[in-house]
Design a protein around this nucleic acid. Structure first.
Lengths: 220, 220
DNA sequence: AGATGTGAATGAGTTCACAGCT
DNA sequence: AGCTGTGAACTCATTCACATCT
């Protein structure tokens, strides 16, 4: 109710998932703008770039303090630094992949550190036929090694790409090993301790939504 | 305002993306229940299975007409049939993959028809080094062939797994070829005609969100 | 009794409108 | 003048509470 004075508003986890997603998008856009040598950007310019409204972007950014310059817009470099700082993305972020089937291997290859800050430092599988295989720059290791690798590499994020039947059990193992965030690709609702962040990427759901949208048009 | 009488409420596209996602989840759950031989299920049971509220589930399902039996719950078989019908998922759904790099190949292997209704019937790439390669049961074809395959296979859904730089151009080609829904994996905001449904799967955004959540805890 | 279907109340998220800085 | 920052209005989604049916 009362105006927050100049308190930096340290923007802890008081951000919704939706807001975080948008901030990620801004982040990416700002990186490109910096590459293009653009120094200043207005909320309206950002809004046009995506299909968002300018006030929404201003509200999102306002969580990090008064970063804009009235009458001029935002300083790309300063805003980028601030966001990277708050996301903890200034340096490379180590990630592990558990489940080195086709999808896991593909993701390990994709996040090899060449495109962004995320870098897959190890891949694990419990199938003896896969352990020891070389996938890109890494060698597949047995799941027993997770705890050790987590400790030495400092990886806190894991991609879970095992079959559905093994997903919960494998997730438990990852959390015991000290992983703090998991991106799950198995089509299953998993449970994790409240201290562990879990997000699901469910391709089946997306495909079903797309199928529905087509079908709804046809049976009109 | 006035009560909708017994009109079946044909539930066209008056469903939000969030509702569709939940319906997909119910769908999956119902399939499992049927396999387990469960004949009836209450909204409360479904609500416990996920962490949703029972009234929300009832509201979602009510869009498809009065399917429940008061005092008893929902008939699994009947509800499943109704949902499958509305989603257009009674039969196998053909899908194409454009961009047969690691990710595209992995997805083509995953949606090979053995796990669900979606079946990748063709994969395309414009790199001569990939055209002709055999990936699982399909052979990589040049992108020029998309229109022909769309016509003969009836595929209306496409997975877009090309690099960001080629994404918009490739999407245009897919829409011209008659694809009506696209699931885009490139980290880019693409534009498509209003007649084409576009959904983005952006792994970078998810990873950044997870990184943020950890970081927010650490810098508390 | 037991569970659905649904109007009314609540809450979250977004847009609007404008005051305030540069 | 131009653009940010933000309270107030508004829209959309979810929860509550309860009438209704088996």
């Amino acid at each position: 109710m009362s105006r927050q004075p100049s308190k930096p508003t340290h923007a802890s986890s008081e951000l919704s998932s939706q807001q975080l997603n948008r901030l990620s998008i801004y982040l990416r856009c700002l990186k490109r703008l910096r590459e293009e040598g653009v120094a200043q950007v207005s909320s309206q310019t950002l809004a046009d770039r995506f299909d968002l409204s300018a006030p929404l972007i201003r509200k999102d950014l306002a969580h990090f303090g008064e970063l804009g310059i009235r009458g001029h817009g935002y300083d790309v470099e300063a805003l980028l630094d601030r966001l990277l700082d708050h996301f903890g993305l200034e340096n490379e972020v180590p990630v592990i992949v558990v489940g080195m089937g086709k999808l896991g291997s593909a993701l390990a290859g994709h996040f090899d550190g060449s495109h962004g800050v995320f870098h897959v430092v190890a891949g694990f599988d419990d199938s003896p036929t896969r352990v020891g295989l070389r996938v890109g720059a890494i060698t597949v290791r047995p799941v027993e090694d997770i705890a050790g690798v987590v400790e030495t590499s400092g990886a806190q994020i894991g991609l879970l790409t095992v079959p559905r039947s093994a997903a919960q059990e494998t997730l438990d193992r990852m959390t015991e090993a000290g992983i703090r965030s998991v991106l799950n690709f198995a089509p299953a609702r998993l449970t994790a301790p409240a201290t562990v962040h879990l997000r699901n990427v469910d391709l089946g759901i997306h495909l079903e939504e797309l199928a529905f949208l087509i079908h709804a048009e046809e049976s009109r």
